[in-house]
């Protein structure tokens, strides 16, 4: 089975699993931390729930009548967006298996959303007008999300490479 043909086939399937893996990591990262975000929104730790991502499309009021439905569809939208975040991470920082890099990635993502995308998002106040609790809670959520997605992808890429070299 170790002929050139078998080898190539195996490598291809491994590469496929890495992309499938990134999709899974992205989706689960968004769902897990989206739910935590929803919980902290329910507990009034932050003013913005996961539905924030839908406001550029449907306005600050949201598409559904009930807030819960808006928030859950927000989590779904986050899951889709998160796949792209995962792919971007793979292309940029995927090879660095350092936990702080992933955390910094989360911080950068927060800065990107709350400073650069802020004018595009109706209902999102500028950071200077946000209350302390919201800033800190969202910051922590982004950090945890960055850690989860970034470190998982980096660990996956580095460990699948090393197992491949071990195999040969």
């Amino acid at each position: 089975m170790d002929g050139p043909h078998g080898r190539g086939k195996k490598e291809k399937s491994e590469r496929n699993t890495t992309y499938g893996r990134i999709v899974l990591i992205g989706v689960f990262g968004a769902v897990i931390w989206g739910l935590v975000g929803y919980l902290s929104y329910l507990l009034n730790f932050t003013k913005y729930g996961p539905a924030l991502i839908l406001t550029p499309l449907f306005g600050a009021k949201g598409y559904f009548k009930s807030d819960a439905a808006n928030q859950f569809s927000g989590i779904l939208a986050l899951a889709v967006a998160s796949i792209f975040v995962g792919i971007v991470y793979k292309w940029t920082l995927g090879r660095v298996k350092i936990i702080w890099v992933s955390i910094a990635f989360g911080l950068i993502l927060w800065v990107f959303v709350f400073y650069i995308l802020q004018p595009l998002v109706p209902g999102l106040l500028p950071v200077s007008k946000l209350d302390r609790n919201t800033i800190i809670t969202t910051l922590c959520l982004f950090v945890l999300y960055g850690l989860f997605v970034g470190y998982s992808i980096a660990y996956d890429m580095t460990s699948s490479e090393s197992s491949r070299t071990n195999g040969q």
Binding site: S40, F45, N133, I136, T137, C140, V143, L144, Y151
Partner: peptide, 19 residues
Amino acid sequence: FGIPGFVVGSTLFVIYLAR
């Protein structure tokens, strides 16, 4: 530290365990 204390504390806890 109130809410920030709880949130940051929990975050650091997760980061610490992940490290």
